[in-house]
Amino acid sequence: AMPLGSQPVEFNHAINYVNKIKNRFQGQPDVYKAFLEILHTYQKEQRNLKEGLSSPGSQPLTEQEVYQQVAKLFENQEDLLDEFGQFLPDA
């Protein structure tokens, strides 16, 4: 079950986007895997930040860095990158 909440718009958008990425990189599962990895890292750091768990001195991943990593990953796929920017706060 999915924690749908009351924001079906974001949810549907995210589903469509994930499917688009999967279709686009069908022959390159590594790209999709790397994308998930970036999201995981970002998510984890956001959570640590919120809970004050980030270790002192560590530099959390900024939105800009996330965007740049994804840009590298989605090279020549401008539409996917543009759409990613719609999800990322501060992009």
Binding site: E10, A14, I15, F35, Q86, P89
Partner: peptide, 26 residues
């Protein structure tokens, strides 16, 4: 129709929570 693996669901969840955060910031 969508065929989502658990990994996909995680990605969808992360993306939609990012989008929500973004909207809340606006």
């Amino acid at each position: 129709n969508y065929d989502l693996t658990p990994e996909d669901s995680t990605a969808v969840f992360m993306l939609s929570s990012m989008a929500r955060q973004k909207r809340d910031l606006l």
